[in-house]
Amino acid sequence: MSTGPYGGPELVDRVRRRLASGPAALDAVVRSESSGIVDDAVFAGLRAEVDAELHGAGPLEPLLATPGVTDVLVNGPDAVWLDRGGGMERAAVQFSGEAAVRRLAQRLVAGAGARLDDALPFADAVLPDGTRVHAVLPPLAEHTTISLRVLARRPHDLDGLVRLGAMTPLVADVFRDLVAARLAVVISGGTGTGKTTLLGALLSTVPPDERVLLIEDAPELVVVHPHVVRLVARGANVEGAGAVGLRELVRQALRMRPDRLVVGEFRGAEMVELLVALNTGHEGSAATLHANSAADVPARFAALGALAGLPGPAMTSLVASAVDVVVHLRRGRDARRTVAEIGLLARAGDELVVESAWSAVRGDQPAADRLRRLLAARAR
């Protein structure tokens, strides 16, 4: 663990031993072990430091609380990094050694109801506040590694994304029209391109008299809407039982009278359930999907369909009749996240293609007129 401004690792170790020896109040133990400290402000800082080491994320706690932080990464005792939207930065945080990193990783994972030890040296779990934690122990990695993905705390609307430079006002108006026309939208992009942020902004424009069902692997979507129901997947406990996956949650959501069905991210078999739902009258739904470009989205659908055991032609038919629009995001070298392309999903024989209707870099947009006609027809 790092040396905090008030007590440091020795004090925390003494407090930990005292608490392990029997029931005791944390405040009393901290005061006892930090003899000579009388200033209330110093004591408050010391107690917060000890509490973070025993119950929170230890020396990573201030990093997780830093405004704008999306990821905190620990590659070893003296290699801590964070990302607050401008790329990776080295953090001024160090641990006392490999054992301290391992102890923090195991405590975080255990707090999420999962297991991390030599028999199972990796774990992927969600903390109670929604932060996603992934950890790997040696010898799978040279050092114990911890990856923390921070839950978005601040909602964004389309106007706010325009001010941030993620899109133009014209593109924002197109997005509003897509939602109003109840077109099914898939937002694609790489990791950290802002797919979840844009999806939350789109859902915030859904009419207030509609019921939105969110289905997520982790509670990441931030949506400002008066009628949102969130279903979150649950992993297996330490005995390997009790898991509830996205596929089951989609089935349950269909029984909850949704106006809009939203899957935080297409990952596998749950995609088939949602596509079937979209083919049975659930319009205006949305999801995100990892892809390197809009043109790669059909291949990603085919790969996920194969994982779900769905033949290629059946997957093509299902997607072609269920998904209307693909929105692709990119992250530039300056770390800015922008809308790169809006396209229409179409069928070309036995294959799917994405026909560009708007692009940030290309002038020729063969599907632009078709998108305008589609929006006009849905507006009637």
Results as ranks from 00 to 15, higher is better:
Gly8Lys: 07
Glu10Gln: 15
Arg14Val: 11
Arg14Asp: 14
Arg18Tyr: 02
Asp27Arg: 12
Val30Asp: 01
Ser35Asn: 08
Gly36Ala: 07
Val42His: 14
Gly45Pro: 04
Glu49Trp: 08
Val50Cys: 05
Glu61Ala: 05
Thr70His: 06
Val72Pro: 15
Leu73Arg: 00
Leu73Phe: 04
Leu82Asn: 08
Met88Trp: 15
Arg90Tyr: 10
Val109Arg: 06
Arg115His: 05
Asp117Ile: 08
Asp118Pro: 09
Asp124Lys: 10
Ala125Gly: 07
Gly130Ser: 07
Arg132Gln: 07
Ala135Trp: 06
Leu137Glu: 00
His143Tyr: 04
Thr144His: 03
Ile146Pro: 09
Ala152Arg: 13
Arg154Cys: 01
Leu161Asn: 00
Val162Ala: 08
Val162Cys: 02
Leu164Cys: 11
Leu170Asn: 11
Leu170His: 15
Ala172Glu: 01
Ala172Met: 03
Asp177Leu: 11
Ala184Cys: 15
Val185Gly: 12
Thr193Gly: 04
Leu198Met: 06
Leu198Thr: 07
Leu199Lys: 13
Leu199Cys: 13
Gly200Glu: 05
Ala201Thr: 03
Ser204Ala: 14
Ile215Thr: 13
Glu216Cys: 13
Glu220Gln: 03
His225Asp: 09
Val229Arg: 06
Asn237Leu: 06
Glu239Leu: 11
Gly245Arg: 11
Leu249Thr: 09
Leu254Met: 12
Glu265Gly: 15
Phe266Asn: 14
Met271Asp: 04
Leu274Lys: 05
Leu274His: 11
Glu283Met: 09
Thr288Arg: 01
Ala295Thr: 08
Val297Ser: 04
Ala306Pro: 12
Ala308His: 07
Gly309Asn: 11
Gly309Cys: 10
Ala314Asn: 15
Leu318Ser: 01
Val326Arg: 00
Arg333Ala: 14
Arg333Gly: 15
Asp334Leu: 07
Arg336Ser: 15
Val339Ile: 08
Val339Asn: 00
Ile342Met: 14
Gly343Met: 11
Leu344Lys: 00
Gly349Ala: 10
Asp350Arg: 00
Leu352Glu: 00
Ala357Val: 03
Ala357Arg: 12
Ala357Gly: 09
Ser359Leu: 03
Gly363Cys: 09
Gln365Asp: 08
Gln365Ser: 10
Pro366Met: 01
Ala367Trp: 02
Asp369Lys: 14
Leu374Met: 14
Ala377Pro: 01
